[in-house]
């Protein structure tokens, strides 16, 4: 019985620490990129992967009871909600930024549109 508890503890904390590492990488990415659209790649990574791995680690640590189901629900909700919110932020940035061409090259068709209007 002791061995299972030890294994459970080591695997749980290991996953938690990898989740922490992913948060650190996310923070590094957010600070390194200059323009918001590339910065969002790093930020969205932490929302889905970082919290996913740390919550799985916590689920292993708490064993099988009601809180594990709650953590599973949180992971599922976040994996649904986080891409949608990143998409909305990207659309917000594209519509409100007039001089977008300096930061990223637009695909050919929208360039002609912009010249015309």
């Amino acid at each position: 019985m002791r061995l299972i508890e030890w294994a459970q503890f080591i695997v749980g904390t290991g996953l938690l620490i990898t989740g922490l590492g992913i948060f650190f990488i996310q923070l590094l990415g957010v600070f390194k990129f200059k323009y918001i659209l590339n910065r969002m790649h790093a930020a969205a990574m932490g929302d889905t992967l970082g919290i996913g791995i740390s919550l799985v680690g916590l689920m292993i640590l708490t064993g099988f009871n009601f809180t594990t189901l709650k953590m599973g629900l949180i992971i599922v909700f976040l994996w649904l909600a986080s891409p949608v919110s990143s998409h909305l932020i990207a659309r917000l940035e594209v519509t409100t930024n007039e001089h977008l061409k300096e930061f990223c090259e637009l695909p050919e068709d929208t360039k002609e549109e912009e010249e015309q209007c």
């Binding site: 969002m40 930020a43 932490g46 919290i51 976040l78 932020i89 990207a90």
Partner: peptide, 13 residues
């Protein structure tokens, strides 16, 4: 505004 929104989202996580 998008940077601030992204960082508040990160803080939430």
């Amino acid at each position: 505004i998008a940077d601030r929104l992204v960082s508040v989202n990160m803080m939430g996580t």
